[in-house]
């Protein structure tokens, strides 16, 4: 089973100073690869650089960032192959636990619909 893990961060939040984060994250990702779990991982460029296209009926509206109304945005994702949702949650929890110093973020664990 495959799961998409997305990291959602509040737009307002200041990123805490967390000097060990890059190193510990690299170690965890290596561990996930060694466990045969990690398929893909990437961080996303800042939300200010994003573009949104909205469809309403047949009308499309293009809006460039920054988005005033956005409360939360996806900061990165991770695609894993796991035996169960519990396992995917475990890896997400390990990922969150790396963040020290007052972060405020949510991870969402979604199973890929592979039946289609």
């Amino acid at each position: 089973m495959r799961y998409l893990l997305t990291v959602n961060q509040p737009t307002s939040a200041q990123q805490p100073d967390d000097p060990d984060l890059a190193q510990s994250m690299a170690e965890l990702l290596e561990e996930m690869a060694q466990a045969g779990v990690l398929l893909d991982v990437a961080g996303l460029r800042p939300i200010e650089e994003a573009t949104r296209i909205h469809l309403s009926g047949t009308e499309q509206t293009v809006v460039h960032g920054p988005f005033a109304e956005a409360k939360e945005y996806v900061g990165g994702y991770c695609l894993v192959q796991a035996r169960s949702q519990d396992e995917a949650v475990h890896w997400a929890s390990r990922f969150l636990a790396l963040h020290r110093g007052g972060w405020d973020m949510t991870m969402e664990i979604r199973q890929l619909d592979e039946a289609r």
Binding site: M1, A33, Q34, A35, G36, V37, Q81, R83
Partner: peptide, 14 residues
């Protein structure tokens, strides 16, 4: 099959 795949991926790293 997924278990075999997982083991093969583990071996690559080991």
């Amino acid at each position: 099959a997924e278990e075999g795949l997982r083991l093969a991926r583990v071996l690559v790293h080991l």
